[in-house]
Design a protein around this nucleic acid. Structure first.
Lengths: 206, 206
DNA sequence: CGAAACATTGTACTTTTGTGCAGGTTCGCC
DNA sequence: GGCGAACCTGCACAAAAGTACAATGTTTCG
């Protein structure tokens, strides 16, 4: 029982091969081929959003558990695709060990999605999060002023705008930012913005 | 790492022992004992319905994955308990093989519930959780290459990293970005990253 | 009171980002 | 063959972003 990866580009073939000895890849879904697999993995284009659910549904129809792999996972997306019948929803570039983990879960009747999404999907409170190191932001570590700056960045504001809003100099904004980056372990405002919105970032390939 | 079963009656002890060599059973929750387990299984009384969620929460607080075992599984119950932090929800009298299956799933970060409940609970979540903004990005306007760049930015990657990943020069990445900003109507990579994750950004005055 | 944390800002400098201008290539299509 | 779209790139430049070092005032707390 192999794993079938459906991908247009096939760029990640090597990664999949690393995860599963029996990984197979194809550019389109062949129901007959899918039927013989332990699970079907779909690489989702960000484009053609409307087609994604249909793609999942088609794959599900083959009767094997389907895992959707999104380049940019989101809560809404996870909902839609799980509802379309996917049993797993993960980052497209999840590490091989994680892929194996997901396969294990899904092929035994479970649902899998990134911890941070599980949390939000079920509406859990942060404190209650179990198993994996949930990478909860240590927002408590921030001072009140730093928090204000961080929040603005989380909404896409520039240093100048933040300075204006808080009635301080741009230099001070930068000072706060340096402190924030250090405390939260991110390297620039983009990663901060994403982290503030509970989105895992690049270096954190989990 | 054993499995800890919390049960008032202890009637099903033998079944649990059959499922797991390392099964332990107790009548009440001892946080210290729970902390040393692979998973905690709660037998839920039908009586004292109000207490069930609290019981789950207490168990979850110990930091180990919790499976709720209900004598009469129901959709509403499943949702409530998963929301309380349970990672699994099953019939109290599930067969030993199934218990093992569930353990496998839950201890690897998955969610488990009876198949027939899965779809319904997912459907329910949609109604319970505030639906995210419908703001649809015009991702179709992006060319395939631009999309790749945008996705990387959405994960916090720098231009250098993107260039490396796509095997192109940093200059080209910048060229793509300029096109992306224009097409999507954002002004910089931070706003792009947020937009790609369906997060509304600071209202740009200019 | 004095240490420590916080907030603020300046000067100066490095690095990243983003743009303008000016080219190249390839590929499909009329 | 010509044309346009997408892709790729170099040089130059401006504008942000971020860091290093330093300093001053305020608040907080033991």
């Amino acid at each position: 029982m192999s794993r079938l990866f459906i991908s247009r580009s096939g760029q990640l073939r090597e990664r999949w091969a690393a995860a599963f000895e029996d990984a197979r890849a194809d550019v389109g879904l062949d129901p007959a081929a899918a039927a013989g697999c332990a699970s079907v993995w779909l690489e989702l284009d960000t484009a053609r959003a409307a087609r994604r659910e249909a793609a999942v549904r088609d794959a599900v129809a083959a009767g094997r558990p389907v895992i959707a792999m999104a380049p940019v996972p989101s809560e809404a997306d996870a909902f839609a695709l799980l509802q379309a019948g996917a049993r797993g929803y993960c980052h497209l570039e999840a590490a091989p060990e994680q892929l194996r983990e997901i396969a294990l879960v899904v092929e035994h009747g479970g649902l899998w999605m990134p911890p941070e999404l599980t949390q939000r999907v079920l509406g859990l409170s942060l404190r209650v999060v179990p198993t994996p190191p949930p990478q909860v932001l240590e927002l408590d570590a921030l001072t009140s002023r730093e928090l204000m700056v961080a929040e603005q960045v989380a909404r896409g504001a520039s240093n100048r705008e933040i300075a204006q809003t808080l009635s301080i100099s741009e230099r001070t904004v930068k000072a706060h930012l340096t402190a924030i980056f250090d405390k939260l372990g991110v390297r620039d405002r983009v990663q901060l913005a994403l982290a503030m919105n509970n989105i895992s970032t690049h270096s954190t390939v989990n």
